[in-house]
Design a binder for these strands. Structure first.
Lengths: 223, 223
DNA sequence: CGTTTTTTTGAGAGCGGTCAATGATGGTGG
DNA sequence: CCACCATCATTGACCGCTCTCAAAAAAACG
């Protein structure tokens, strides 16, 4: 875990913080904000910190984690370009967000959002819709975890990532096996073994452990 | 599964439908609505049906279920008196709700809610807060399912129900072992065995399979 | 190119699932 | 009120999946 000292770092040659722009929260809602670069494994916000911003992935990938009391880690969601995260109803963040790879993140101040929401019904509805989308994601996650074997979990996960990254049947996983395991409630070994088995069965093909080609989508979804 | 023909049934001697009253959606928000009685295992709404109402448990208990394609059943939440459920962002219900025991449910028409929300910011915020609460419940559920053994799951479940029913350390479970199993991602046999073991360990005491006394709360939470 | 981290593979054990039988519970009708 | 039956819960034996521990292979990094 790296210490967060965002301002001292740079991102792909661009200034670390690009101020004075607007950030899209939904397709129609844009608010004044700025962009920030984060290195691999760098913390974006921590559990318990004051939730002063909401965030949007411009480029890269983000994981949101919660630590159980006994040290086990639970990944509640992955966020890909276009996804909004970090919206809280309470004062503080209820989980930690970290960049999975070098990422570019848009930030909007919460006070700016609250101000806009006070004047504009459309903004309220957009924020509400974001909460509802998070709810749906959590419920889909529950469906993925509830009484399914490892092959089903990994299969559904790959299909989900493929659809969301919109790259057809060719997936480039940004996250490690450990991330996948903590997301699916499995161990790295089981994730690895399952992928090997899916490849043996001709359901996927791997070129390196991150580049996956989905050969048989229906087999992935139904077992 | 019983067929739903609510108007032809009665509930504990009171008329099945009591019209012309108001139903509390939150502590401060009350809207015109009515109350309806449901028998044990009676469907309140079904997956795919138009979401014309939102619901509140007045008395009894409700389960919300989703059926996986292969027939497995997943319980996404239990609702106890005071809890609101059935609020959807889309047109249709994404899950099925059934009364676990004979229950009294308050209903408010969605058009009435939308009308109130159009005029009153407090109502919008209340509805948004309800969605956020559902999200938190789903995330807590994820925490309960993620990489925990049966004893941890059952322990956390019992503590949760005890706290929500507010009856101290004496819990009267409205739901069957099958309901608990489908909620925790276990089988009835494992739930049963786990309860027996918790009793042997002196962590709980059972008077019948529904009446549970929680003797050691911290042991329940941490294993 | 060497070092560190991540991934893969293997062997063994344990937890929870499956199948099956017994025991408890509750509702119904005689 | 009790006998009967249907449903639900418990218990047991066994098996398979996933975890654990361990080591080798591959990839990422400086």
């Amino acid at each position: 875990m790296l210490t967060t000292n965002a301002t001292s770092q740079s991102f792909q040659g661009t200034p670390h913080i690009a101020a004075g722009r607007t950030v899209a929260i939904t397709r129609s809602i844009e608010l004044p904000g700025f962009t920030m670069g984060f290195d691999r494994d760098e913390e974006i916000f921590g559990e318990g910190e004051t939730a002063d911003f909401i965030y949007r992935v411009v480029k890269g990938a983000v994981r949101v984690t919660r630590l159980l009391d006994d040290g086990r880690r639970l990944i509640s969601a992955f966020y890909l370009p276009g996804d909004v995260f970090g919206l809280e109803m309470g004062e503080a963040h209820s989980a930690t967000a970290e960049a999975i790879v070098e990422s570019e993140i848009g930030l909007v101040k919460r006070v700016a959002i609250d101000r806009a929401a006070g004047q504009d019904r459309a903004t309220i509805d957009a924020l509400w819709a974001l909460t509802a989308r998070e709810l749906r994601n959590a419920q889909d996650h529950l469906l993925m975890l509830g009484r399914r074997n490892a092959a089903e979990k990994v299969g559904l996960f790959l299909v989900d990532i493929a659809q969301r990254s919109g790259s057809g049947s060719e997936v480039l996983l940004p996250m490690s096996r450990l991330d996948i395991a903590d997301f699916l409630g499995l161990t790295i070994e089981t994730v690895s073994r399952t992928m090997t088995q899916l490849e043996r069965d001709g359901i996927i093909a791997m070129q390196g452990c991150r580049r996956i080609r989905l050969l048989d989508m229906s087999a992935l979804e139904h077992a």
